[in-house]
């Protein structure tokens, strides 16, 4: 059963140096506050996993938390590139960043395999691209029934998955709705999980399109209202598009970024 704890307690207990950590969220419901707590607690050598590493991953990378990134699209959605990510790849600042690069379809299938307890997933994808030549976790496979040549990608099973959801009840059952991305698969694929929520309520009244993660599938729940900002939680907040646009200037320069990090996260 999920324990209801503070975010600081959850990160202290469940995220360790060297872990493979997935903070998932596909534009919506991104666990930004949890990412900042990982930075504050000074975690190092993390393998960060995410389909769409956006600005919270830019922040984790710039803060020196990451050793490796497993991903399919690393950008500032609708704005442009991630400058801390780019600086790490191009200039090894503040540390070298190893990449394991996929497509969205590949990453989604890797989570599905992880959640399903399978060693790999089968898909049509990557054929003719240069990705298999730079990513060792993309392999051809022949269908044993039709002989068709397909692509296999290995399961992702993070040590810990972190997501943000709209609500949990006091027993730790989690409810989310709107664009739910790959969060259910990422939680079920992981050894441990942390869910930050907008609010903990007595009851979870049904919402159209909801996904419910039962308490026994989650390790820890922490109430963090606004914990997805500048991403959003449908029904609670809107995406702060201005923040995403402003991040471009903040992140472009190392000194400006470090000033931001000190003022916005570390103090």
């Amino acid at each position: 059963m999920a324990e209801i704890v503070t975010l600081a307690e959850a990160v202290t207990e469940l995220v360790s140096d060297g872990d493979q950590v997935a903070l998932e969220g596909f534009t919506h419901l991104i666990p930004v506050a949890a990412g900042h707590e990982i930075i504050r607690q000074g975690r190092r050598d993390l393998t960060l996993v995410r389909m769409t590493p956006d600005i919270v991953y830019d922040q984790l990378i710039g803060a020196g938390c990451a050793r490796k990134l497993v991903f399919s699209w690393g950008g500032n959605p609708g704005v442009g590139s991630l400058h801390r990510f780019r600086d790490a790849v191009q200039n090894a600042w503040p540390a070298p960043l190893e990449l394991e690069e996929h497509s969205h379809a590949g990453m989604a299938n890797r989570y599905v395999a992880g959640a399903s307890g399978l060693p790999f997933a089968v898909m049509r994808g990557y054929t003719g691209t240069d990705l298999p030549s730079v990513t060792t976790t993309i392999k051809p496979i022949t269908c044993p029934f039709t002989g068709e040549r397909l692509t296999a990608v290995p399961a992702i099973n993070p040590d810990v998955t972190v997501i943000h959801a709209q609500r949990a009840d006091r027993a730790g059952n989690v409810q989310m709705w709107g664009l739910v991305g790959v969060q259910k698969e990422a939680v079920l694929a992981a050894g441990r999980s942390i869910v930050t929520v907008e609010e903990v309520t007595d009851e979870l009244s049904p919402v159209a399109g909801q996904v419910v993660l039962p308490s026994w599938a989650v390790t820890a729940v922490a109430e963090v209202a606004g914990g997805a900002h500048p991403s959003y939680a449908q029904g609670y907040s809107d995406r702060d598009n201005t923040y995403y646009q402003e991040w471009d200037a903040i992140s472009r320069d190392r000194a400006t970024f470090e000033k931001w990090l000190t003022e916005a996260v570390l103090t």
């Binding site: 399919s72 699209w73 690393g74 590139s81 990510f85 191009q90 497509s103 969205h104």
Partner: peptide, 15 residues
């Protein structure tokens, strides 16, 4: 020289 965001959904969309 320049690191761009990467593939996203495009390889399979294009396929």
């Amino acid at each position: 020289g320049v690191r761009l965001p990467g593939a996203g959904g495009a390889p399979e969309i294009a396929a």
